[in-house]
């Protein structure tokens, strides 16, 4: 992996709109961060509040890069994302990035991208990159209902939507569709980012059938740069040695956020 430099940069908001119910896309200028050539899976740590009422930045995966502009797609679910949803065009946005590692090898596989809710950004961007590179792949996006979708269900174009209420696409979670696709394609490799129940289901499934899989892990972060040691996830190769450091727990911010499914356990 190429080690990229962390950049602290004040961007300018160019667009911030609700693209589906409760789901926003924000685009901003960020020339210096773009110069570091971020790749799908990498994230930004965004200061949402100039005051210190919310002292911690919010980690947000990058959803697109276009010349000197970056996008994020985010779901409003707490105070930080609520504040972010109220940013107007022209506002200054305090960014740190690009952070973390990125999605890996797809050669010799059929990539199946699985996303939903808070985890759409890296999946949407990876989808676009694979399209641009002419890599045949499938994308499965889950939501509660049609209101939360901004893509169109189009299996002929390899885009599959699922909804809990059956209001568009396949009725139910993403898993039946994912299983069906895995049965049909050669050498499936899964790439997933989404809410915890989705990630746990994908994790269980790939471990059972021994499919290669990369998960983009969500974690509460203090700094996103390795200072605070707050964002750990348990490694599967947990040896439970009495005296160790960084063997049982991995730092999602600097080791991740992308992990091979086999590397980690969800508690």
């Amino acid at each position: 992996m190429i080690v990229k430099k962390m950049i602290a940069e004040k961007g300018t908001v160019l667009n911030n709109e609700e693209i589906a119910h409760g789901i926003y896309q924000m685009t901003f200028s960020a020339e210096r961060i773009c110069n570091e050539e971020p790749f799908p899976g990498q994230f930004l740590n965004i200061c949402v509040d100039d005051s210190w009422e919310h002292p911690l930045r919010r980690p947000m995966s990058i959803a697109d890069v276009n010349d000197n502009q970056l996008s994020i797609i985010y779901k409003v679910f707490g105070e930080g994302t609520k504040i972010l949803s109220e940013y107007k065009n022209g506002y200054s946005i305090d960014l740190l990035g690009p952070l973390g590692n990125s999605f890996g090898e797809t050669e010799g596989t059929t990539p199946i991208l699985i996303g939903g809710g808070v985890g759409l950004s890296p999946i949407i961007w990876f989808h676009k990159v694979l399209q641009t590179n002419g890599v045949e792949h499938k994308i499965v996006v889950g939501a509660q209902s049609v209101n939360e979708h901004f893509l169109s269900h189009d299996p002929e174009e390899n885009i599959y939507l699922t909804t809990d209420d059956g209001s568009v696409g396949e009725h139910g979670t993403v898993m039946p569709t994912v299983k069906k696709i895995c049965d049909e394609v050669e050498n499936p490799k899964l790439f997933s980012c989404g809410p915890e129940p989705m990630m746990k289901a994908v994790h269980l499934f790939v471990n059972k059938f021994d499919f290669p899989c990369e998960l983009s892990v969500e974690s509460y972060m203090g700094c996103a740069t390795g200072l605070c040691q707050g964002c750990v996830i348990e490694r599967a190769s947990n040896s439970l040695k009495e005296h160790s450091y960084h063997e049982r727990y991995s730092l999602v911010c600097t080791d991740g956020p992308i992990y091979q499914a086999k590397e980690i356990v969800f508690s």
Binding site: W52, E53, H54, P55, L56, S219, Y220, M221, G222, C228, Q229, G230, C231, V232, I233, E234, E242, H243, S244, Y245, H246, E247, R248, Y249, S267
Partner: peptide, 27 residues
């Protein structure tokens, strides 16, 4: 000795602050 520190979750934001429980993770 080296220390792994505490199990997650280890941090949470609070009004104008945060709570941590890292557990002295160090090399």
């Amino acid at each position: 000795h080296p220390r792994e520190g505490n199990p997650p979750p280890r941090i949470v934001e609070t009004p104008s602050g945060m709570i941590n429980s890292i557990g002295l993770a160090n090399i």
